[in-house]
Simulated scan of single mutants.
Amino acid sequence: MSNRLELCDVDVGYGARAVVRAASFALGEGEIGCLLGSSGCGKTTLLRAIAGFEPVSSGEIWIHGRRVATPGQMLAPEERRVGMVFQDFALFPHLSVARNIGFGLRHLSRRERRARVASLLELVGLGHTAELFPHQLSGGMQQRVALARAMAPRPEVLLLDEPFSSMDAALREQLAREVREVLKREGVTAVLVTHDQLEAFAMADRIAMLADGTIQQCGSGFSLYHEPVNRLVADFIGQGAFLPATAIDALSVRTELGRIAGTRPHGLALDLPAEVLIRPDDLVDDDASPVRATVVERAYRGAEYLYRLELPSGAEVLCLLPSHHQYAPGAQIGIRLEAKHLVAFARTGVQAASPGSN
C-alpha cells in the first residue's frame, strides 16, 4: 500500500525557535492517523505544516506521491488538495446546510454539485437538514456538516484540528466513533489533532504521540497503552503506577505483587534498580490472595470503581473493579496480579495518579 501522506524528518519552527523536530509519520490510503499530545507539544504546528500554513525548516512532506514541502519549496495550501475541519467548524451562518457543503464545488455543474451534496448529507446522516441554517443545528450536527463540507471536493488528505474540543467528554468519544465510520465509508485518509487519548483511541488507526516537540512513539492505541517505549509515553497514555522491581532474567522481573514476565527482552541490568508499570486492569480482587492492600480512595465510573490502594510497603497502585464490589476507604482487600504485558524502566520513583485524574 503506497503512502497517501508521508512526513520525513520534518522540522518546523518560528524564527530561531524549533517547535517540532525530526518528525516522521506516514499514512496509507484510507488510514486515519492522530497527532496526540498535551498543549504546546507541537501537534497543531505540525498539522499546519501539512496544510501548507507553516514552512518546514528541514525534511520533506509528501501527499499522494507529490512533494509539497521542503526547506526551499512550499506548495500553497489550495494546491495541496487538503481539506480542513477546524475547532469552531467555521460554517457560513448565512448559508443553508446544503450550500455550506457545496461551497467548494463551484467547478462542478449544478447537477453534479447537487448530487455530491445529497450524497454527503446521507453519508453523515443529515439528509433532512439540507435547507436548515447552522444556528438551527446542535453542535454535533454542525460538526458533521463541517466534515461533509471538507470532504466534498474529495481531498487527498483531510485534517481535523481538535474538532470535538467544544463538546463534553461523552459526546466527544461518540462523535469520534461516528466520524471514523463516515471517513472509512468514504475511504478518506485523515489526520486528527487532539489532546484527548480516548478520542484518539476511538478514531485513529495510527497514533503519533508528541512531547517536547518530537514524536515519542507511533503505533496503534493498543501498542501505546501496553507497550510504551519510554516514560513520557507511559505517563501520558492511560493511568497506572510504577512499582520498584528487580530483574530476574532477560524476560521477567520480581515486584512486591509477584513476578511479571514479558515476551520480549526488557533490557534491564540484573544488578540495578528498576520499576515496572502496573495498569489498573492488571489487578483483580482475590479474597484468597496473601497480598493485602488498603483502600485509600475510590472514584465511581459507572460500571466500575477506580480504587487507589496502598500496599504493605507504602507504595500505591490503581485498580479497576466492578461497581457491585464496593470497598470503603480504609478497607483491607486481597489483590492478585494478572499483568499480560511487562513495561519496565530504570527506577525514578513515580507515585500513582489519583483516581479522579485522567
Rank of each mutant, 00 (worst) to 15 (best):
L5F: 03
D11W: 11
D11M: 00
V12G: 11
V12K: 06
Y14N: 02
Y14A: 09
L27D: 01
G30H: 06
I32V: 15
G33C: 06
L35W: 08
S39E: 01
T44M: 06
L47V: 04
A51Q: 04
F53L: 15
V56N: 07
W62G: 03
R67T: 12
A69T: 06
P71Y: 00
G72D: 14
E78Y: 10
E78W: 09
E79G: 06
R81S: 12
F86S: 03
L95R: 13
A98T: 00
N100Y: 11
L105G: 06
R116D: 05
A118E: 15
A130G: 06
E131F: 00
P134T: 05
G139Y: 02
G139A: 04
Q143C: 10
A146P: 04
V157R: 00
D161W: 12
S166T: 11
M167T: 09
Q174Y: 13
L175N: 07
V182S: 01
L192V: 02
T194K: 04
D196K: 07
D205K: 01
R206D: 11
M209R: 08
D212S: 14
Q216W: 05
Q217D: 01
G221P: 10
L224M: 07
H226Y: 15
E227A: 14
L232M: 14
F236L: 01
A245S: 01
A247K: 03
R254M: 15
L257C: 12
G262A: 08
H266R: 05
E275V: 11
L277G: 00
I278C: 04
D282S: 10
D286K: 04
D287F: 13
T294W: 13
T294R: 15
E297V: 10
Y307I: 04
L309D: 14
E310Y: 11
E310G: 13
L311I: 10
P312N: 07
C319F: 03
Y327S: 12
G330S: 07
Q332F: 02
I335F: 00
R336L: 11
L337T: 05
L337N: 08
R347S: 11
V350L: 15
A352Q: 07
